[in-house]
Each structure stands twice: as C-alpha cells, then as structure tokens.
C-alpha cells in the first residue's frame, strides 16, 4: 500500500488483499459513522468521527487516490478534527456534557436518513453506469495532480486560497475577545 504511494505502481499482492482491505475500511467507516449517531457524548462522537475519516482515507488509498488519502489524513483528520475537538472543549463547561435527544426524534432522524439512502439506492440501481476498463487511464502521480491543479483547476485553486484568507479573517474576528 505504501509502496503504491511511493512508486505509483500497483503491486499484484494488493489485488488479492483488496477485498479484505475494503471490508476493513468500509466497516470502520460505516460502523463509526453510525456510532456517532448513537453516541450521546460529544467527545466520543469526535473520536468516532476520527475513525470515520481515517476509514475514508483508507478507502481513498484503495481507489488509487493516494494523494487524496494523505490529504484526508493530514487536513481532515489532523486539522479539521482537531479544530472540532477544540470547539467541543471551548464550548462546554464539562467536556463530557450530554445533550439528550428523545427516542422518537432519533427514530424520525434515522427514518429520514434511511429514506434518503433508500431513494438514492433505488436511483443508483436503476441507472445504467458502465464501469470502464479504459486504456487511457490517467496516471495518478503527484506530477499530474500538480499540473491539473495549475491547469484546468487553476481558478478554483486560487479562489480557494482567497476563500481561506477571508475565512481566516472571519474566524479570527468572530473568535477574538474584542467586542
């Protein structure tokens, strides 16, 4: 797996373990996602979220998106999640504070989620998507990624930079103590 990251070549052995890896990562992801639903403790939720994000990163690895997986781990799990945990800590007198919800609410929520999932699944199943085995597959190496970012995705890339600046200003303003 890590060799893939380094060389960009998929070793034979990975193909054999792919089902296992898929099961593991998907399992972790889905399980901890639903644990977030069930959990009533905000810190635990953050913890489960970390597992979910990690699992998703694993799935990215599995899908030949190694760069993304790394970013997911660094930025999402490493940055955003820490931010969230900070948020949790700063906004509660007691970090293990519980805010209960009623059972019926949870049923409604899960019901709505399930309904949405069901509808999406129906749509997915009814849509013919031909999976490609195309020969002109793009090389997913870091060079291509960089060149794509500065090519077709130049504007979004720069806009994202500006956005981050604005966000920084906004967040700093909102969070600082001066009235």
């Amino acid at each position: 797996m890590f060799t893939t990251l380094a060389t960009g070549i998929k070793p034979e052995s990975l193909d054999q373990v792919a089902p296992f890896l898929y099961l593991i990562f998907a399992g972790i992801t889905v399980f901890s996602a639903w644990m977030i639903v069930i959990s009533q403790n905000i810190v635990r939720m953050a913890m489960y979220l970390l597992f979910t994000l990690g699992g998703v990163a694993g799935l990215y690895f599995l899908m030949n998106a190694e760069f993304l997986a790394a970013i997911q781990l660094i930025v999402y799990a490493g940055g955003t999640l820490i931010l969230i945990v900070f948020g949790v800590m700063l906004t509660s007198k007691n970090p293990f504070m519980r805010l209960h919800t009623y059972l019926w609410e949870r049923f409604v929520a899960v019901g709505l989620g399930a309904l949405l999932a069901m509808l999406t699944t129906i749509a997915l199943v009814n849509t013919p998507i031909k999976q490609s085995a195309s020969d002109q597959m793009v090389n997913h190496d870091i060079h291509t990624i960089g060149s794509t970012l500065l090519g077709p995705f130049l504007v979004p890339f720069e806009v994202a930079a500006v956005l981050l600046l604005v966000v920084m200003i906004g967040a700093a303003f909102m969070a600082r103590s001066r009235a």
Partner: peptide, 28 residues
C-alpha cells in the same frame, strides 16, 4: 470577500466553480 464570491457565482460555468463560488459567498 462575499462580493467576490457572488461575482464568481454569476460567471461560474462548471460544478466546481459553482460549489466554490457559493461557498466563498456564503462563508463570509
């Protein structure tokens, strides 16, 4: 910043631009 985002919204021509312009109009 919000004005900037809205300008982009008006000329956004693909999904990623729509998405990122919307966000850069919304977040500020």
């Amino acid at each position: 910043g919000a004005t900037f985002g809205m300008c982009l919204m008006a000329s956004a021509n693909n999904l990623i631009m729509i998405f990122i312009a919307t966000e850069s109009a919304s977040i500020p």
